[in-house]
Simulated assay, not measured.
Amino acid sequence: MSHATRRRMAVIAAAVACTAAAACGSTDDTAQPAPAAQSVRIATAYELPGDRAYPEGIAADPRSGDVYVGSYSTGAVYRATPGTKRAEVFLPESADGRKTANGLKVDQAGRLWVTDSTAGVTVYDTATRAALARFDVPGAGARFVNDLAITPDGTAYLTDSVRGVVYRVTTGQLAEAAAHGGKAELTTQFDLNAVLAPHAADGFTLNGIVADASGRYLLVVDMGAGELFRISLAPNAADAVRKVELRGGNLVHGDGLDLRDNTLWVVQNTDNALARWTVTDDGAGATLDKRVTDEALGLPTTSAHSGDQNLVVSSQFDKGGPMGPGTPKPFTIVAVEGI
């Protein structure tokens, strides 16, 4: 592994392993209560090729049933098609200069968005695999472009875990970039630093992000403090960012989010946990319904629904990856039933 790769993977280790209150703003890292456990089944859904995949992000295309998975360690993107058990390489390592593949989403037009934590986001045509446009974080300094959500009108919102901001890319900006060389800069739409819990200057905060189906608001998790924020998308909203009232637990180590109607699934990475919450109609509150902790989740980083399957990314970052020595098992995406 090259020195540059080791440095990039050390960054993700800090992101998923921040547990100390002083470093990450968390005040309670103890086990949280959860409703009585019910039967949960975890089984392999897809195998990933290679012995250094260390997957991080996942996206499902509802039109085709295809599932895309990104490799944090190499930047490759894999695709699994319906009826198969093994994913194949869709975009090779370092495609279009990307160093990582973190958050992934497929938009309503069938375009695949792939974040590179070190730079920004690239948008691909899934039919041709061609890069349509790339949006980079402006200026120098630390950044960690982590996850993204796409609203019903096609606007993309992306979290930066180091800068504590949410970027925005509109459909108009995408069309403009695609028509003029394919390169543009990300613009900050929401700065959450004023409401985030105290944390180290280089600590990781914002991580997973989702949009509600009506396009009224976004939900974004602060992985260090275990808090959830609601961001209003109404024009000129007076109280655009507000903390969501959490009942029955917290979201410490919260990573990827998956929202369906009023049900929110949250992956809590170093806890090897997947939690299901019920969100109020206005997005102002959430109640923990069920939380499963199981080593079989393999240090999960995010989840996505493909049809009725709840697919979870088993990163194995702690098995010879950015979080510790060892030898990983074959890399997989697992399906979780019963939560």
Rank of each mutant, 00 (worst) to 15 (best):
H3D: 15
R8S: 04
A10H: 10
V16S: 08
A20C: 03
G25I: 06
Q32E: 10
Q32H: 06
P33G: 08
V40A: 11
R41I: 07
A43K: 14
T44W: 00
A45G: 00
A53K: 00
R63L: 10
S71G: 14
S73N: 15
G75P: 04
T81Y: 00
A87Q: 05
P92Y: 07
A95Y: 02
K105G: 01
K105Q: 14
V114G: 09
T118D: 10
A127Y: 01
L132V: 03
F135S: 06
F135M: 05
D136C: 03
V137G: 00
P138R: 11
G141H: 04
V145E: 08
T155D: 13
L158P: 01
Y167K: 04
A178Q: 14
T187S: 13
V195S: 11
F204D: 05
D212I: 08
A213N: 12
V221N: 10
A234P: 01
V241G: 05
R242G: 14
L251R: 05
G254Y: 01
L259K: 10
L259C: 07
R260S: 10
N262I: 00
Q268D: 02
N269E: 07
T270V: 14
D271S: 10
T278K: 12
G285Q: 15
D294E: 09
Q309T: 11
K319C: 07
G320K: 05
G324Q: 11
G324F: 09
T327M: 09
T332C: 00
T332L: 00
